[in-house]
Design a protein around this nucleic acid. Sequence first.
DNA 1: GCATAAAGTTAGTCTAGGCTAACAATCTGC
DNA 2: GCAGATTGTTAGCCTAGACTAACTTTATGC
Lengths: 152, 152
Amino acid sequence: MTKDDHQDAVAREPDPRTADNRAEAFHGVRVARRNELAEDYVELIAELIHTQGEARPVDIATKMGVTAPTVAKTLGRLARDGLITRAKYRSVFLTDEGRALAKECRHRHEIVLRFLLSLGLDSETAERDAEGIEHHVSERTLALFAAFANRS
Amino acid sequence: MTKDDHQDAVAREPDPRTADNRAEAFHGVRVARRNELAEDYVELIAELIHTQGEARPVDIATKMGVTAPTVAKTLGRLARDGLITRAKYRSVFLTDEGRALAKECRHRHEIVLRFLLSLGLDSETAERDAEGIEHHVSERTLALFAAFANRS
DNA sequence: GCATAAAGTTAGTCTAGGCTAACAATCTGC
DNA sequence: GCAGATTGTTAGCCTAGACTAACTTTATGC
Ligand SMILES: [Mn+2]
Ligand SMILES: [Mn+2]
Ligand SMILES: [Mn+2]
Ligand SMILES: [Mn+2]
């Protein structure tokens, strides 16, 4: 269908499903990107509840570095998606599902961070990179990161 | 200003600029995310020009796993941003700036990929994860990845 | 307990990035 | 050289995620 198909007749070693894999990889990244924000939010909300006793929109806004209306709209989506519950003018609570996701995210975040630190990265850069990388590591990669961090 | 300020009076060990760093980290991730798509496109366009002789929208669409109109719109943005040039119904060319970005992206992609492979990851998963991670590694992290991959 | 400050909401705007449907141009094979 | 297939464009729709402006509610301090 695409040019590759007949090009492969000439190809030496590349396997015939390379194009598919590319599209799949990009698709996987797009999916991951769709969940990034939700992951960061529930992770932060869990942390705020733990450290401050409650998760207030104003604190979420400060830590996320966005404005209050942006937080409000995002919380609306999280509620719609069953990750949090909220009442008007009150602070935010995680549902069971939200709590489970938060736990998983914190776990991932910590492994990625520990891994970067164990590679020798300074903590500020490690924190910044971990915040982005954490959403793009598969289970398999995470396991390798954890193993490496542990035996360092 | 936020609750943290006076909370810090009670705090044990966390340093006082933690909140700022968090917001900065999230901001950095948001910025990185804005460039992800452009980076993947120019990298792919460069690759298509190299392997096929030209970069046709239909091939970009296939490899990216999106529809032709999506590609058309994205190419419009890339042209607007000075990364490519194009004429109606013709294939796409990189500007100097686009070529430079493509080169840099390919470089980053390769280092991340080699790094993941050298950690012991299978190549399919490595390719998928690299496609996402590459946009979130700082120069510093990249250098550590490269060093690790080389001495493995 | 009330005035004011702080926090939260709502409405409206914008861009990116995805899609489908419909149409236009180009390429290909005969 | 033209019919049909392929490719590309355009228009229009949608959601996410950002913002400002304006308003309402809640919390605070005196
Ligand atoms: Mn993150
Ligand atoms: Mn995180
Ligand atoms: Mn990528
Ligand atoms: Mn890439």
